[in-house]
Design a protein around this nucleic acid. Structure first.
Length: 596
RNA sequence: CGGGGCGUAGCGCAGUUUGGCUAGCGCGCCUGCCUUGGGAGCAGGAGGCCGGAGGUUCAAAUCCUCUCGCCCCGACCA
């Protein structure tokens, strides 16, 4: 079969590279289904790409499945090019493995758990660290077999607290996971960056505008990780990036410069002030006539049995992820009213660091630069002013627990942090030995000494990537597929298919384009032209070739490019070569561009 | 899990407050005519356990109880 480079032909035939619209299962909807909120969800439903089967569980119709296949093909090419080997692993996984790593309980409610007829525990794999490591521990013995990179592209299952936005956050979703096994940190580092760069290529080949950001490793463990964020307003993640340097991070992790001392050189005496009913920073600003940056916000958090007071400047917010890290736990939550009273001796709104005894105190460095601050007095309706942190209290720890926000100065000292929202389409992790140790996956070095394998894991949300692309590539009329992912490259639209001349020209063009390997859909329906144009725009074919009476009389047809709106007439005898060339070139351009 | 909302034809909705006649409208679907450069027009037609179960009543889409499902906002994640 001749073909266009980069186009992946499935081994089970789609019925050639062409298809007639009258045969295609793509039920387009004029009206927007009530359940859809964001553009990608609406459009994927309306264009007949997906249908819902349960909350967070979707069927992919032919057009949707073709797009998925193309994404997977790109992922495969890049994983293989980076030395990955594809495997197929169980989705149904035995509970014992998950008990060995402790994640049967850690994963909790989010894991789909089930039992077989003999009452043995199983789960539907939410991820594949356990099963992969368990496989490798039996098969890899020697340093000579390293590094090893294995990956799989499969359905994963997570009983999400709140599935939403169509396939963006499903409970059943397709994910690529690659696991790297190395003998030492140097090897891991190499694997990590190999994947990092492969990800950059994958997403640009998919036509996605992504940005790698530093992230918090969270529950999965490990110590270094980047998330690949597709920039989009509908994104659920908040990121910041520097206007000057390369710094970019998830806000959960983001750091920024600690504001310097704006010294007045004058210390004030510590004074008690009666502040009836004033609980918020805003109340205090008004009452004292001082800016929020003079306030010491004191928030009581708990994590299990541990209670801590978190101190940040009044105009800053606490970053719970950083706070959790600071106290060495996975998560923290704001303490309830009772706990606050117990610890501070006052109701919520009057906590302060001076004289606070009931718990650990963690202060953000910015707090320590305040010279004469205001904070709660640990008694009803009492605040203290003139607080000098260095003089009046001693935190147990001074550590960055502040939520960075747009406008804050970057650590580089030159730029300012900008804000953006992103869809997390991929993540690369340095895992270390957490799983290899728990599961006893070791190798023998040159001396015959056993060591745990050093692991990394690297995920791509394949189905989510599809939604992210639609989120970035659409307009009022529908989806604008990048050529590399389009379910078909070209739609041929005869204005009136019943017209003999138009039909003959359309059929010939259809045949010729198929023959040179262009993926083409012929709209042979007996519909009025408006209907066919609307559907073509909605589905998002990169190229539309319209065959109408006027141009056809001159032996011409109209070529229109979906994304740019570029439109021109071309002679029938040139159109095949022309379209094939342009499509080939635009695919190759993207591929070349991401080779360096 | 907390808060809010919704389940009536394939899709979008009205009707529910104040129980009552054959359960409606638009889109889509089927048949015919007509029409063919941006979701045409006319005529005819099919399609409903009004989410489910129980109750109140002469009578329930409508009132009561219980249940199931879905959506949105929050805490989690590819």
């Amino acid at each position: 079969m001749t073909g266009i480079p980069g186009v992946w032909y499935n081994w089970f035939d789609f019925g050639g590279v062409g298809l007639r619209m009258s045969r295609l299962l793509a039920p387009t909807l004029r009206e927007v289904p009530a359940e859809a909120e964001i553009a990608s969800h609406k459009l994927m439903l309306r264009a007949g790409f997906i249908r819902k089967s349960a909350a967070g569980v979707y069927s992919y119709l032919p057009l949707g499945y073709r797009v998925l296949q193309k994404i997977m093909a790109i992922v495969r090419e890049e994983m293989d090019a980076a030395g990955g080997q594809e495997v197929l692993l169980p989705i149904l996984q035995p509970a014992e493995l998950w008990h060995e790593t402790g994640r049967w309980d850690d994963y909790g409610e989010e894991m789909f758990k089930l039992k077989d007829r003999n009452d043995r525990g199983f789960c539907l794999g939410p991820t594949h660290e356990e099963i992969t490591t368990a496989l490798i521990r039996h098969e890899v013995r020697s340093y000579r077999q390293l590094p090893l990179l294995v990956y799989q592209i499969q359905n994963k299952y997570r009983d999400e607290i709140r599935p939403r936005f169509g396939v963006m956050r499903g409970r059943e979703f397709i994910m690529k996971d690659l696991y790297s096994f190395d003998r030492d940190d140097g090897g891991l580092d190499e694997s990590y960056w190999k994947m990092y760069h492969a990800y950059e290529r994958i997403f640009s080949r998919c036509g996605l505008n992504t940005r790698p950001v530093e992230a918090d490793p969270g529950a999965i463990g490990g110590n270094m990780t980047h998330e690949f964020m597709a920039l989009a307003e509908a994104g659920e993640a908040e990121i910041v990036y520097c206007s000057h340097c390369d710094y970019a991070a998830n806000v959960e992790k983001a750091e920024c410069m600690t504001p310097g001392v704006e010294s007045t050189g004058q210390l004030e005496p510590l004074t008690k002030v009666s502040t009836p009913g004033m609980r918020t920073v805003e109340d205090l600003e008004e009452f004292f006539g001082r800016p929020a940056s003079d306030m010491i916000k004191t928030l009581i958090y708990r994590s299990g049995d541990v209670v801590v007071a978190a101190l940040v400047r009044g105009d800053h917010a606490v970053n719970p992820t950083k706070l959790a890290r600071a106290i060495g736990s996975l998560e923290v939550e704001l303490a309830d009213e009772n706990t606050i009273e117990e610890v501070t001796g006052a109701p919520r709104g009057f906590a302060g660091p001076v004289g606070l005894k009931g718990c650990r105190i963690i202060a953000d460095p910015a707090v320590m630069n305040i010279e004469a601050g205001i904070s709660g007095g640990n008694a009803v309706d009492v605040h203290l002013k003139g607080i000098n942190p260095k003089r009046d209290f001693t935190p147990d720890e001074i550590v960055d627990i502040r939520m960075a926000k747009p406008g804050d100065p970057c650590l580089c000292g030159k730029g300012t942090l900008q804000g953006a929202r992103g869809i997390e389409v991929g993540q690369v992790f340095k895992l270390g030995t957490k799983y290899s140790q728990a599961l006893g996956a070791t190798f023998a070095d040159e001396e015959g000494e056993e060591h745990p394998l050093i692991m990394g894991c690297y995920g791509i949300g394949v189905s989510r990537t599809m939604a992210a692309v639609v989120e970035q590539c659409h307009d009022q009329d529908g989806i604008c597929w990048p050529i590399s992912l389009a379910p078909y490259h070209v739609a041929i639209v005869p204005v009136n298919y019943r017209d003999d001349e138009q039909r003959a020209a359309a059929e010939r063009l259809y045949h010729d384009l198929c023959e040179v390997g262009v993926e083409v859909l012929l709209d042979d329906r007996d519909e009025r032209p408006g209907v066919k144009f609307k559907d073509a725009d909605l589905i998002g074919f990169p190229v539309r070739i319209t065959i109408g009476p006027r141009a056809l009389a001159n032996g011409q047809v109209e070529v229109r490019w979906r994304t740019s709106g570029e439109e021109y007439l071309i002679f029938l005898n040139e159109v095949v070569t022309h379209v094939q060339d342009r499509i080939t070139r635009s695919i190759e351009d993207v591929e070349l561009a991401c080779r360096h």
